[in-house]
Design a protein around this nucleic acid. Structure first.
Length: 511
RNA sequence: GGGCGCGUAGCUCAAUGGUAGAGCAGUGGCCUUUUAAGCCAUUGGUUCAGGGUUCGAUCCCCUGCGCGCUCACCA
């Protein structure tokens, strides 16, 4: 029972509700009569303010009470709605003593109020609603964390905000209610996804939806979440990527498709990893990875312009310029330049591992060649991945779905985009040779044979689809949460996910 | 999963081996132009939980729970 946990304060507010009901006032009415948002009311007033003959601006507003200053025969208050804050002035002159007393005694911070009256400007110059009547819209039982704004030289100083991360994540509704900058982050998140869609729609891409529950997971190397469908009597997996389904659609002739949705990976959590995350993948027939690289830098700079109005961001302590063209670094050349090693001289894992050992670089000695190259990249290329950079031409053995670089059997046409040292996206020229694809699946199966969970399961139907013929295709995937994290200059994915995963507690999932 | 750190009032934070305090919000009062309103008074605590040491633990020790940072993992 909600009531069991009530403190003195909540009990007091419950009594106010009962008192309202006794007076025949419904504390949770159904209908409102709003005519303007607070911002619209201010704009409407300012438009006619200079004109002395203009009629008074009469409005009905609604919002949450965020500040109350009672001063005997009058009260000031601030209400907040989606468009901003507005001051209310309640005076005995307009309301009468009884009505004003009702406001003082029954209304608390956090309550939703409807107020009608005319717009005016106070002696201090603030546009204000002179209230002629008001009504309870919804009574708050629990008190929001106290937060006050002080304006000093035009700068808003926040006092006593809610900062405890656990409370902010578990009770995001409170976080959102009291921290406008948090609302701003999620507004930018929405704008980001809107801009991504606009960019792709403009270029003739078709947005699609593919299964989240899959009998075979694929398209990435991650451990899946497993579930069970009772009626089908079958184990199913939550998808770890969209890739294999979207490429089936390319086979089907859709030519340009994309999907924005949730992927699920049963792995660790960090500032840049979350077990469920939003992914955008697109596939474009008759494109290769160079085309996709150009599209990527165009897309991200377009999104930044739409969302932020600029191409410059500050992420991870770095000033970053997203303006195309981005740096392009071929992995082999990058390692020659920065590590002094030509990986083509080390055609197998054993040789590479020897080199790493000689240079005292920590690694798993039995890792496949591609992973050891990954170790080299982390060790030597990290510093050049601050400004937007494409690393390209990846080892084949860690890229089972990408097409070979012509004439180089160890390397595939794949790139990853990095910003601020964090991997943002992954793309390649898609492997469309069904026989070669089957071989790759088999190789992956062997490479990970000792680790059943990491095995790349064979998707026979996907091979069948390729066998019907898939045009040359470029494919692309981006972690949307990471993109939002960069654009909003946050340090953790949790700050851009409305309800980040937290351990369950006794009092329930989010309390 | 490993390491480090944190957990005190609704929020933000103090303090102490002798059972806890401030600001904000809350409650009562004064106040007709305030905006962190002001002034006076005042309520509010299982100091995360359990155990140990001690005459006495919120503080020291152990265990658990939760959160943060970090390492590993996540091609």
């Amino acid at each position: 029972m909600l009531e069991d946990d009530f403190s003195e304060l909540e009990t007091l507010r419950l009594e106010k509700i009962n008192r309202l009901r006794e007076q025949g006032i419904e504390p949770y009415p159904t209908t409102t009569f709003i005519t303007h948002t607070t911002a619209e009311a201010v704009a409407a007033f300012e438009a006619v303010e200079a004109d002395a003959d203009a009629a008074l601006t009469a409005v009905v507003l609604a919002g949450r009470l965020r500040a109350i200053r009672n001063m005997g025969k009058l009260s000031f208050a601030h209400i907040e709605d989606r468009s901003g804050k507005l001051q209310l002035l309640l005076r005995v002159n307009e309301l009468g003593q009884e009505k004003l007393d009702a406001f003082v005694s029954d209304f608390d911070l956090g309550d939703f109020i409807e107020a009608s009256g005319t717009m005016m400007r106070t002696k201090r110059g603030e546009v204000t609603l002179l209230v002629e009547d008001f009504r309870m819209l919804a009574k708050a039982l629990l008190q929001l964390p106290a937060d006050k704004d002080e304006v000093v030289n035009g700068e808003v100083i926040r006092h006593a905000v809610l900062t405890d991360p656990e409370t902010r994540y578990r009770q995001r509704y409170v976080d959102l209610a009291v921290n406008p900058e948090v609302r701003e982050i999620f507004s930018k998140r929405t704008a980001t996804i809107r801009a991504l869609r606009a960019f792709l729609d403009e270029r003739g891409f078709q947005e699609v939806e593919t299964p989240i529950l899959q009998p075979i997971y694929g398209g990435a190397a991650a451990r899946p979440f497993t579930t069970f469908h009772n009626e089908l009597n079958q184990e199913l997996y939550l998808r770890i990527s969209f890739e294999l389904y979207l490429k089936r659609l390319i086979v089907g002739g859709l030519e340009r498709v994309y999907e924005i949705g949730r992927d699920f990976r049963n792995e660790g959590v960090s500032f840049k990893h979350n077990p469920e995350f939003t992914q955008l993948e697109f596939y474009m027939a008759y494109a290769d990875y160079h085309t996709i690289m150009e599209m990527t830098e165009q897309m991200i700079s377009f999104v930044a312009q739409q969302v932020l109005g600029t191409q410059k961001i500050n992420f991870n302590g770095h000033e970053i310029d997203l303006t195309p063209p981005w740096n392009r670094v071929q992995i082999r050349q990058g390692l020659i330049d920065h590590a002094g090693i030509d990986i083509n001289d080390y055609p197998n894992a054993v040789a590479l591992s020897e080199w790493l050992k000689e240079h005292h670089i920590d690694h798993k000695p039995d890792a496949p060649r591609g992973k050891l190259i990954g170790v080299l990249m982390e060790e030597f290329l990290e510093p050049i991945l601050i400004q937007p950079t494409f690393l390209y031409d990846y080892p084949r053995d860690i890229s089972p779905l990408a097409k070979n670089v012509p004439g180089d059997p160890q390397t595939v046409e794949r790139f990853e985009g990095f910003i601020g040292g964090v991997e943002l996206c992954n793309a390649f020229t898609e492997l469309n040779d069904p026989m070669e694809q089957e071989k790759r699946f088999t190789e992956m199966g062997r490479a990970y044979a000792e680790n059943e969970e990491e095995r790349h399961p064979m998707d026979e139907d996907f091979l069948k689809a390729l066998a019907y013929g898939m045009p040359p295709t470029g494919g692309f995937g981006i972690g949307v949460d990471r993109l939002v994290m960069m654009l909003t200059e946050q340090r953790s994915l949790k700050e851009v996910i409305l309800f980040p995963p937290l351990r369950d507690t006794e009092s329930g999932p989010s309390a």
